[in-house]
Computed example of a mutant assay.
Amino acid sequence: MSRKVLITGGTGMIGTRLAEMLIDGGYEVALLSRQPGNSRYRGFRWDPLAGTIDEAAVRYADYIINLAGSSVSDGKWTQDKKREILSSRLAGTKLVARELAKGGHHVEAFISASAIGIYGDQDDRIVNEETPPAANDFLAQVCQQWEEAALSVEQEGIRTAIFRIGLVLSPDGGALVPLARTVKMMAGAPLGSGRQYMSWIHLDDLCRLLIEALEEPQWQGVFNAVAPNPVTNKDFTETLASVLHRPLVLPKVPEFGLKLVMGEMSELVLASQRVSAEKILKHGFVFEFPHLKPALESFYSSEE
């Protein structure tokens, strides 16, 4: 009998690939969605902000993977946008936790997303899961509240694993798309000082990690979901340019220019996060793409 996985945020970049890989692995997949008819998977309706959810959703699942949250890299961080970034994560997580607390289900594990934004700007210090969250940092505060909501599920006796996800590499979405576009247009350049660290993970490695965490009981608690070899922004840009066979002709993009264009959102590319993958390696996870160049080549190797 195949195992049933319920995904929140299943239509996003990570959720889309994760659902494909789960199906390939013999799982059944259903999505929690505001418009459940729009997908090839079974769907259950929910509206996190209204606090409504189809009661059959949680009863369907053996496992729940919680990825729901509005994009942080889509549009300037106005007050409304910041409210949406926080509420879209908190409301969904709290709603699932509320349903799980009612009992009458057979959910064995709850896997929830968080982000390495919890560490804030750490310069070149290596941070791990024991590093305290950054103070006075918007994304760090969002992640902290998001994780607290997820940990409330653990109090119901359900195995809970939280993954602090780094920069996810995919040609279909996320930060790599605009970065690759500028390099292809011969307009690529290191951002800010170029010395800030980028802790990244290939989309397929992230999905394999989440799937491994479903059934293996050692995955409990908080983990960094990053490849073991973070790189500086300058190295990232140069590696991307070499894979795309494009020269880097421009000098660095100055920090003040980025702040002007992106506002507070510029911290996504300017904050330095050198995040350790040691804990997931010790838990036995094996990366297909531990190094940046082969990860990028897996997307762009056919492009000359």
Rank of each mutant, 00 (worst) to 15 (best):
M1T: 03
K4D: 03
I7F: 02
T8G: 05
T11P: 00
M13N: 11
M13V: 13
G15L: 12
G15E: 13
R17Q: 13
A19Q: 06
A19L: 10
D24H: 11
G26L: 10
Y27L: 02
L32C: 08
Q35F: 02
Q35I: 01
N38F: 09
F44S: 06
F44K: 07
L49T: 13
L49A: 07
A50Q: 15
T52G: 07
I53T: 08
E55M: 03
V58L: 05
A61T: 04
D62W: 00
D62V: 08
D62M: 06
Y63M: 09
N66C: 14
A68C: 07
S70E: 14
S71L: 09
S71W: 11
D74R: 10
G75H: 00
G75C: 00
T78Q: 08
D80P: 04
K82I: 00
R83I: 03
L86I: 08
S87V: 03
S87L: 09
T93E: 03
K94D: 15
L95M: 14
V96G: 03
A97W: 06
H105G: 07
H106N: 14
H106M: 00
H106Q: 14
E108W: 00
I111A: 09
G120E: 12
G120M: 05
D121V: 09
D123L: 07
T131G: 09
T131F: 13
P132N: 12
P132K: 04
P133I: 15
A134R: 14
D137N: 14
A140H: 12
Q141G: 15
V142H: 06
C143D: 07
Q144D: 14
Q144I: 10
E147Y: 13
A149L: 15
L151A: 06
S152P: 03
V153A: 01
V153I: 02
E154C: 04
E154M: 01
E156P: 04
F163R: 13
R164N: 15
G166W: 03
L167Y: 06
V168E: 09
P171T: 02
G174M: 10
G174P: 15
L179M: 15
L179N: 06
L179C: 12
M185V: 07
M185T: 08
M185L: 15
A187D: 08
A189E: 11
P190E: 15
L191K: 01
G192I: 03
G194K: 03
Q196P: 06
H202Q: 08
L203S: 06
R208L: 04
R208C: 02
L210W: 01
I211G: 00
L214E: 00
E216C: 12
Q220G: 05
V222G: 04
F223K: 01
A225I: 06
A227S: 15
N233Y: 02
F236I: 01
A241C: 03
H245V: 05
K252R: 14
F256L: 09
L258Q: 10
L258H: 02
V261I: 14
V261K: 08
G263C: 01
E264G: 11
M265E: 10
S266C: 10
V269W: 03
S272H: 07
S272E: 12
Q273F: 07
I280N: 01
L281Q: 01
L281S: 04
G284W: 08
V286K: 12
F287I: 08
F289L: 02
P290L: 04
H291P: 04
E297K: 15
E297Q: 15
